[in-house]
Design a protein around this nucleic acid. Structure first.
Lengths: 115, 115
DNA sequence: TCGAGGCATCGACAATCGTCAATGTACGCG
DNA sequence: CGCGTACATTGACGATTGTCGATGCCTCGA
């Protein structure tokens, strides 16, 4: 299995060469695959959609935890993966951690599929 | 880990509810995640880009095998996963198996990210 | 009919993943 | 200070994954 990047740069830069626009280099493929792998789990996709569906555009772990029927630790783990993949941001405010979508991150990924 | 679908329906129908367009149901999330998981590996992304970059839009295993520095069995394995995910088609012609992109499959996936 | 090429499948292996319960850490309120 | 809340981290587990070498199945040409 490929070695995993500990932290991914923002999704916006040179990361997302289109899959159908010429042969991907090893580095390009690895970077893109890391982000798709982060979205390759039902729980994480539901987390993304739950956050996107909020009024304020952000949500804390306690809210997400109730909606997902997963243990609190597991939800926190998944959110951490999505942050590392550059899809979510984490903002600590008082006692809570608020997670929000990185603006344009998924759109940039989408463009890597369209070409 | 979630149970895996043995075969996915075509990408075009009701599969790809947008991630940012309301909370995903369990089934929607599972179906979408299965396709993203198929793209969550560098070798498979390179296979997709190699096929997309061909003149004819298709390629046989022997060609892909040389370009990827993987064993023949491994390449065949990855191609099978991409077929099951509804991203590639397989056409046997004589002695060779030709793999081609499913038209619109990746574009539909892209639309699930844009919303 | 035989041999060789092209591909799929099998068995095995280490590595990674998703999940949980338990514990650790930081903050806010008495 | 001490307690409770919100969250992160740890350790452990079964399951899945990516990879290989070996083997089996077709198809073609001699």
């Amino acid at each position: 299995m490929a070695t995993e990047l500990t932290v991914l740069e923002p999704v916006s830069t040179s990361c997302c060469s289109p899959v159908t626009g010429g042969v991907l280099s090893d580095a390009e493929a690895t970077s893109l695959a890391a982000r798709f792998k982060a979205m390759g789990d039902p729980s994480r996709l539901r987390l993304l959609s739950l956050i996107a569906a909020t009024e304020t555009g952000e949500a804390c772990v306690c809210d997400l935890n109730e909606s997902l029927d997963l243990s609190q630790g597991t939800v926190s783990h998944h959110l951490g993966i999505l942050v590392k993949a550059g899809l979510l941001t984490r903002t600590k405010r008082g006692q809570w951690s608020f997670y929000a979508l990185v603006p344009g991150a998924m759109a940039t990924l989408a463009r890597a599929l369209d070409a």
